[in-house]
Nucleic acid binder design. Structure first.
Lengths: 217, 217
DNA sequence: CGCGGATACTGCATTGTGCATCATGACGCT
DNA sequence: AGCGTCATGATGCACAATGCAGTATCCGCG
């Protein structure tokens, strides 16, 4: 192994591009980047605060950002700004195809394994999920009603906001339905449970791709 | 969380419980666990195959699973089975509150930063997202129409299947809407763009929690 | 008999997380 | 003037998780 001067042996991850995107808006300190990531990116790209701090340094190593040391009194504070190469990399990434979206939900795992415990726990899991999605919808609603840091970005910004809101709305609607479904499971009417199961499968099975092209595999 | 006596200093992660849940259904080899994780858990708890292999060993170390060495000819194959302590741990976990659900979407990040590139890339990102969610809905539909490995688990299984299907349906619907929204951005009618932005914000802002408490941000 | 694909893993380098820790600045209170 | 508290602005460490390459065996097919 040898040292490569110029371009070090570092690979850009999705985290790199996410932080790079923030830097494209304006220069930030790592602390601000972490806050901003928490407020905006977290909705569709959750990363630990720690990762943001580490990423800023990696971006500098990649030549995609520059750091400037400033100070507030005795206290050091490093501001990161995007470079020309950084903007180029960001544009190239924006033009490239993306990995498919993924859902991660501890509650969903528990619901999947619900037959290993009593329905009271299933019910509690569904209820908590309802609260959590309601809370998310609340926070999104507050954001939408409030002021924006970058007014000129609003027109595209609302697209991703709505995506997130729609997903959480779907989860909230599901939770409402699921609460009823658990009632049916609890009621002990075998025929009703059977019917509910068949109907749910039918709903899912009846959601093929958009255009009515018959699948052939 | 409680520690069983004699158990080494290993902490259970969500991955531990996810794999433990699979073991609660029947004994599996790590390879089968990896396949099954890919087929079912992946929908709401995506983990690399590697993690499943490592997790099985950790479960043994925790005393929650036992491994039995068998062989197919010259070839070794280890079967993992849940222990009594494992079932206890699983039940305790199923009764505990869960972390909120999270979405991760590279496409959403790109849409969030769409103003850094041309609308043609925004359009492509939306279209790819549409294809990916359609594909997911297709696969779910096929699963729902097919046979189940554990027929007696179907009644609860359909709950989590529907959750996943609903989320992907929401994403597919969003993509349809977004395609139209991008058209509006492209058309160059400033007033229409303005209207669309305001209306979208209004939709998001009008989704507070279930109970009709008036928001007072 | 040779070939390819499914089965059944392991090793390594690197990224990402969770938690603890530390230090200063800003602001208000008494 | 002194004190508390919260926001600011990070760093270190251990461990979890990923991605990818590599290894080797079994089985069916021509």
């Amino acid at each position: 192994m040898q040292y490569c001067q110029g371009v070090p042996n570092i690979k850009a991850t999705q985290t790199s591009y996410a932080v790079l995107g923030l830097l494209a808006l304006k220069p930030w300190t790592t602390y601000e980047l972490a806050r901003q990531s928490e407020r905006s990116l977290r909705w569709f790209f959750p990363r630990a605060e720690r990762a943001v701090y580490l990423e800023a340094k990696r971006l500098v190593a990649l030549g995609w950002a520059e750091s400037t040391k400033t100070a507030t009194g005795r206290r050091a504070s490093t501001v990161y700004a995007i470079t020309r190469a950084g903007r180029r990399a960001l544009r190239a990434w924006l033009a490239a195809p993306s990995a498919p979206p993924q859902l991660e939900s501890e509650g969903a795992i528990k619901i999947f394994f619900a037959d290993q415990a009593g329905t009271e726990h299933l019910r509690a899991t569904v209820e908590l999920l309802a609260e959590q999605t309601d809370d998310a919808l609340d926070r999104l609603a507050t954001m939408a009603a409030g002021a924006f840091t970058f007014p000129d970005r609003m027109r595209t910004n609302v697209l991703s906001m709505r995506l997130v809101s729609d997903v959480h709305q779907a989860l909230a609607d599901w939770a409402d339905w699921a609460a009823g479904a658990v009632d049916v499971l609890d009621a002990g009417d075998e025929a009703a449970v059977e019917r509910q199961t068949r109907e749910t499968l039918a709903v899912i099975a009846g959601r093929p791709a958009r255009a009515g092209t018959p699948s052939n595999h």
